Computed example of a mutant assay.
Amino acid sequence: MNDIVEQFEVTFNQIHQHLKELNGFPKNDNFVELLQRSKRKHSVIRVHFDQLKQYAKLRNAIVHERISGDYFIATPHDDVVKALKRIKRTLDQPPEALEFATRPVLFFKDDTELSHIIEAFQQHRVSQFPIYTNDRTFAGLLTNDGVVRWLSENHQNGSITLDKALASDVLSSERERSVEFLKASAPVFELEEQFEISLVENRKLKAVILTDTGNPDDLPAGIVTTWDLIKVDQREREDEENE
């Protein structure tokens, strides 16, 4: 077999195998169908979707429309094989979730005074802080929306007193917010999968907190919101442009 064609086919089949793995080895393992499914969940597929779809057409032409022996109706260009191999390398060794997280993570204990947390919201320009108990048990995610809600529920005669108000008091006013935990060294695919699952389940995932072990009661190494996922797409597109 022509060497360039063999390299293309081998790499293409390896990517096909990755797509099967990313989708739990479904019965329908058609390459383009797997592409469609993976596009919704994973940035590397989303960014390279059109390319991979065209490569699938080329692969079909090579496999099903061979004229004879080593004479193919179409032969991939060197640049095509190089691009396909780069995509395969990214699938083989995806970046870690922690690379796209906001860090370091500012967090507070549940007995922290609310006035201090309000100052932190203003100073750091973030919208949420993880809250932990004194024994490092995760207590919940305290948000600026939750603070506003608590203030509206606790004003008297048009005035609000923050004296003795603690983070734990505000947590009771937080609406249920989905928070997941993931090992900091987990591949970015697992991070994206968490947000995709929450979308399918119609459950708003507010954040994924990354810890060294993935245990909720370990201190946070990073925190990822839907806004941080934009970094994943940007990173992949920059890598593509610099190739």
Rank of each mutant, 00 (worst) to 15 (best):
G24T: 08
Q51H: 15
A83P: 01
V81S: 00
K27C: 00
I67Q: 10
H77K: 13
F25S: 06
F72R: 10
I73N: 12
K109I: 01
A83L: 09
S68M: 12
F12T: 05
F25N: 15
D78I: 11
F108Y: 11
S115H: 05
I117H: 05
R37V: 09
I73S: 15
I87P: 00
E33S: 09
D111W: 07
F100K: 06
F49K: 06
I73G: 08
S38N: 09
T90W: 02
L91T: 05
F72T: 10
D110M: 15
D70V: 04
L52N: 03
V44K: 04
E96V: 05
I67N: 02
T75K: 12
K41S: 06
D78F: 08
R59W: 05
V80R: 07
H77S: 06
K53Q: 10
R40D: 12
F25T: 01
L19D: 02
K39H: 09
N60W: 14
N30K: 15
E33P: 00
D70L: 10
D70Y: 09
Y55N: 12
A101D: 01
Q51P: 00
V80T: 15
L22W: 14
D29S: 13
H48A: 08
V105Y: 02
T75D: 03
Q17F: 03
K41P: 01
Q14R: 14
R86G: 00
L106N: 10
V63D: 15
I73P: 00
D29I: 03
I62V: 07
V63T: 11
L34V: 04
D29G: 10
Q14G: 00
N60I: 07
F108H: 09
P76N: 12
Y55S: 07
V105A: 05
F31G: 05
Q93R: 03
R66V: 10
L52D: 01
R59K: 14
R40M: 13
L84R: 02
D92R: 06
Y71E: 15
H64N: 10
N30L: 06
F108W: 08
F12A: 09
R86L: 12
N13F: 05
Y55F: 14
L114P: 06
H48Q: 04
G69T: 11
R40E: 12
L106C: 02
S115N: 06
L84Y: 00
Q51E: 11
L52W: 01
E21T: 14
A74E: 15
A74H: 06
